[in-house]
Amino acid sequence: MRQSKGFKLGTAINISLAVALLTALGFVIFYVQNRPPEPVTNVVKIFRETSNQPPVHKMDIYGPPSSPLKAPLGIEVGSDGKIYVADTGNNQIQVFDSDGRWVARFGKTGGDKVQFNYPIDILIRNNRLYVADMRNNRVQILGMDGKYIGQIPDPNKHKDLEVGPLSLAQDKDGNLYVAVLDHKVLVFDKNDNYVKTIGRAGRQAGQFNYPYGLAFDSQGRLWVSDSNNAMVQVLDPNTGKAIKAIADDMVLPRGIVIDSKDRVYVVDVLRHTVVGIDGNQFSLLFQFGERGLESGQFNFPNGIAMGPSGNLYIIDRENARISVWGR
């Protein structure tokens, strides 16, 4: 075999083949990435996709000039469309009808019956209003007309139970869930007897840091806005074990509500947006809202509720109004 300097035919063929192969590969990749989209042939498919579009802003509801809302935080909507607002800064509840017209208000500052000290959330349960009366360390139970019925903790039923309520929810069996300032969720049965505690303070899954938001999906899973941990956790309420933690794009998640299609709406207070999450895939569907004073913008949104027609009622705290969104 001779060692010759200079150009070798064999090497040249090898190099050419390699270059050709790589170029062909490049074309294949380019084509795959940029091929024209398939024509849409399935109309049902389009409908399903557009239903995951975000809702649009419909209207704003303000308190009447004689009693404006002041830094409200919580909201609930009844099956008749009546809107109940925890008007926190005024330590009262204000009621509006489904058209947004003011109906009534009740409560005042204090610690006695139908008095509040920082009412922060409302839940309608068994045709009663449950009000998270935070600084009075109780959940007050009122009739739909505002008459006093009782409270949790009840001195007869709940000895030594400390309740600093942040958020309220109920599951499909009618059990009451109360997220508290101790970074836990207390569970009460249909008769308001204490059953158990879920979770504790901490940063890990199944632990909470100001759990300010509770909701149940159609599968009975408990969704918790683990606010100061900047995430939303999905738990099995029977075991308290965390199924999923969603932290992407979350800053201070609070108000949370889930519709019949298991779309989860989470209010991110300090981003002034509402995030829509697919409750099954745990993926982000959309988000809407931005900071501002104009109609359709938010200035520290907080609580959220869903009306019978699927409209969303979002507390716009510093703008002292309810922002209504729908499809």
């Binding site: 300010y212 100061n228 201070l252 207070v269």
Partner: peptide, 22 residues
């Protein structure tokens, strides 16, 4: 507007250090 930011947590719903906003 700073109060709007700070009172988000320092009303007691996000911190144990609580200031009365009124």
């Amino acid at each position: 507007d700073l109060a709007g930011v700070c009172f988000t947590c320092h009303d007691g719903s996000g911190s144990k250090l609580v200031i009365s906003r009124p």
